[in-house]
């Protein structure tokens, strides 16, 4: 009976942790995705101030959440994405629209992969 209770507690713990990590990763990715998409829209509209505001929001999200995120996402994936955010920020500062849009497109792809890879879908399981 004791073993069964320990097993049930362990399974609950593991499942709970899985749900938490998935939700945290997905919410983080959604936040970054929204900020970067808004930044790209602002760049296309030539509103550099708004673009700066959005990319700074993405940077803030990375600064605040990357330490927790590193506990359950491959460190390399996070540092790569963070690096691209910094590149976009630099491009916004220099008002280099082409670099900004191309880097943002690549970042959106990375973020989507990161978010999708943790979802409980049949393709991910298989």
């Amino acid at each position: 009976m004791k073993e069964t209770i320990i097993a049930v507690v362990l399974i609950t713990l593991v499942v709970g942790l899985c749900i938490f990590t998935t939700k945290y990763t997905v919410s983080f990715c959604d936040e970054i995705y929204a900020s970067v998409s808004d930044c790209v829209t602002a760049v296309r509209q030539n509103d550099w101030e708004l673009a700066k505001k959005h990319i700074e929001a993405a940077e803030d999200a990375f600064d605040k959440k990357s330490s927790v995120l590193e506990a359950f996402v491959m460190h390399q994936d996070i540092s790569e994405a963070h690096g691209v955010v910094l590149k976009i920020s630099a491009a916004v500062d220099t008002k280099a629209a082409d670099i900004c849009i191309s880097e943002a497109t690549s970042l959106l792809g990375q973020i989507r992969r990161l978010s999708e890879s943790d979802r409980l879908t049949l393709s991910n399981i298989l």
């Binding site: 069964t4 049930v8 362990l10 593991v14 942790l17 359950f72 460190h75």
Partner: peptide, 25 residues
Amino acid sequence: NSGTPLIYGIMPILALLALEMLISS
């Protein structure tokens, strides 16, 4: 590999342990 989160090792081990204990019961 210190670039891999520790949880990648801990989570499956705990899951295996829990399943083994349940199956044993």
